[in-house]
Design a protein around this nucleic acid. Structure first.
Lengths: 173, 173, 173, 173
DNA sequence: TATGAATGAGTATTCATTCAT
DNA sequence: GATGAATGAATACTCATTCAT
């Protein structure tokens, strides 16, 4: 991938994540990436193509993140890793995830099915640990997981570490 | 308030909530409300003014919703009401709340302080019930509360009732 | 004439003179005059009608101004009065005259014929005073007259009094 | 400069000069120049930028015009050249100058200081010629100069040549 | 007489996209 | 691969004007 193409992807990600897809003009992206506006269309066909490219290039990242949990064989470890996951995301990837969460509000991009493997793994973990209603417990933890993520991505991290410990204590992991 | 003005407010709310603020043109709103585009600006000065008007007219609704919890004197009842709150919202008000949640992603509209009274009330409730870390428990429940709300507003209500009962059971309320 | 109608005329004159006819919206006039926009159209049919009304209501003023010169029987006095005329205009009438001068640049309103009687009177005066080319002298003085007027209306009155005396000295009047 | 950019400048100058800045819509300019409306904004940022570009591109023209007088070393020649200047302007530049004179009525564009060097040169010339009040004489001639210019630009050139000779005779130049 | 709601055409400007080079 | 000129449709917003009350 050429330097300029990558610049476009980076700039677009940053702008889409912070200002929103619709509020970001291709002109702004071009300026931010220091390339001509035409180049965006040469590389990505259109603005939506650019968004798709960003999302796809992040897909791998996302899979790798989940994989660390899905590969776990110890049930307690599955829960612990799930709780810790949002805190492990590197700041440099916040833009990508902020964009993902924003897009969830648009029907076309609401790919909530991606989290299903994690739900199933958690269900398995909770059933191993003899929780009464493992699937509801899994859903419960996912909800908490999502709220933490949102809070972190919005920059409200005040006492999140204390809360993380609180959670681990609650689940004795 | 004249009929047409109200039409504009209704149409705009619906469109902003479903398509997003930026993605909704004033022209589209006018057509949807069956009024001239100019009328929007005569009544609300500009597109942002229209958004503000929508938000303000919903403010009251929101306060009333929270009030039912904040007035509670029984600690268990506070928790039970909090869990049930998202399920009590009438479908006709979904648009308003969906808009609110979408806007939380824009810095200018992130009024996360509005929920503070509820956090405090929950802290009080948990401390009354001798929970070890009442403020963390409050934050915890708020997180769950927000995730449920998001899920409901997005239309994923499949087994939410079962989950609600699960939660009430968990908190023995 | 009702109070409100007069308010409209005054406000419109002020705004037309200072911001220009095209740059002044009827809305602005209405606000400035503290009346409803509709009233403007009730009284003057349309924006152009308002301009016409202003111009007509000033016509009389203008005629009276010129009359003081045209009635003169002493030739020297004619010249002296012509030189002094621009300086005699009351500040409160500057708006009217500024509007007049601005409109001269629009073909439709270029009524340069209004000054003809003055040209003729000056020609007469100069011929009485045995000037070689009285009609050219008249035209000459009119040019000076107009430049002074423009300068005064634009607010460049620095040393205009000295210049006035200089002129009177030049014409020995 | 591309062909189309120049077309825009030419069309805008013509329309601004004849119909006025406010009365000329960018749409009209685009049609007149046979380009898309968007191109105006790509080249000049906004309507005001277009005006500025026109004015700047004429600046040079103006300087060159004045220079022929300012470089003069013979005092009589200075006066003669000043009198003749308005008559030397080529018809093709009338639009530019008409625009300049119109804009003088708007505060933002009233650059009356540009004529100062000419005033000073004339003062010098009149003092060389032993006129009693050289600075007032300079101002006087400038006033005449401006009135002639206005008359010519408005198309009232009937007997202007006779008047020009009259002036030269008056100043014996 | 006076208001204020309402409109349709118009305004400057932006946008995503195309294309010749 | 990369640019920059060019476009047409859209955008938020303004305007003069009408009309029912």
């Amino acid at each position: 991938m050429t330097n300029k193409k990558e610049n476009i992807l980076k700039s677009a990600l940053e702008l889409f994540a912070n200002e929103g897809f619709n509020a970001t003009s291709t002109n702004k992206i071009a300026q931010h990436a220091a390339v001509s506006e035409g180049l965006i269309f040469r590389h990505f066909k259109n603005k939506n193509g650019l968004l798709t490219a960003i999302l796809e290039s992040g897909e791998e990242k996302a899979s790798r993140l989940f994989a660390t949990i899905l590969n776990q064989t110890d049930s307690k470890e599955v829960i612990r890793k799930t709780i810790e996951l949002p805190f492990c995301i590197h700041k440099s990837e916040y833009d990508y995830w902020r964009l993902q969460f924003k897009l969830k509000w648009e029907k076309e991009y609401n790919n909530s099915k991606k989290i299903m493997p994690l739900v199933e793994k958690l269900t398995w973990a909770f059933s191993m640990l003899k929780y009464e209603k493992p699937n509801l417990e899994a859903q419960h933890l996912i909800y908490i997981f999502e709220s933490i993520s949102i809070e972190l991505l919005k920059g409200n991290l005040d006492n999140q570490n204390i809360y993380k410990e609180f959670l681990k204590y609650k689940y004795t992991v």
